[in-house]
Amino acid sequence: MGLPETVPYLDWRWDDFVFLLLAGVMLGSALLVVLGRDIIRSALWLILSLAGLAGVYGLLGSPFMAISQVLVYMGAVAVLILFAVMITASKRGPVRLVFQRQWWIGAIAAIVLVLLMVTTIMLTEWNATAEVQVAEPRDIAVMVFEDYLLAFEALGVLLLAAVIGGLYLAKRDDDMPETNIPDTAMRNDEEGA
């Protein structure tokens, strides 16, 4: 039993429907990441947003990137962020004020940037093909291990340096006493400003 040519009742093509669905999930959960009050919920919405992006990669004909996105972002980076959230989370619950006082300047800057970029995209004559080109994993492997082998090795060194640097930075210094200032932290949280 195959699917009908178009989406029932809407008369859209299936890939358009999937594109709009994934774009909606991605942008909606990204908005919830930014606007949410509870930081741990923000982290969970971030995972959903990245999942939507993985689906868009699949729609763009690069299944390898979709898998990498799931493995690296939803697997590794999201867990890293969740751990950092749990380490730094306050037991008194979410703070009352999640935005800076000058948040509206940031909002104006972001809106202006989006409008500028969208007009640029619409005005430019793109020399694009009409069909999506599929990126075969075999071609990607050949490219990584032949054309960009040196960059790949350098990337390995960079990741090793990041692991060691992260361990060093997050390590507890035993010879230096902790400057513990619970009073100011408590006062600031209760003020919420």
Binding site: L46, I81, F99, G106, L113
Partner: peptide, 28 residues
């Protein structure tokens, strides 16, 4: 779509108070 996602991330980076929320916006 990419520009919209970038705009959302940029707003989050500029407006959030929590450093980890800012890092999440950078990921976006």
């Amino acid at each position: 779509l990419s520009v919209l996602l970038f705009g959302i991330g940029m707003f989050g980076f500029l407006a959030k108070r929590n450093a980890i929320a800012m890092l999440m916006s950078i990921e976006l």
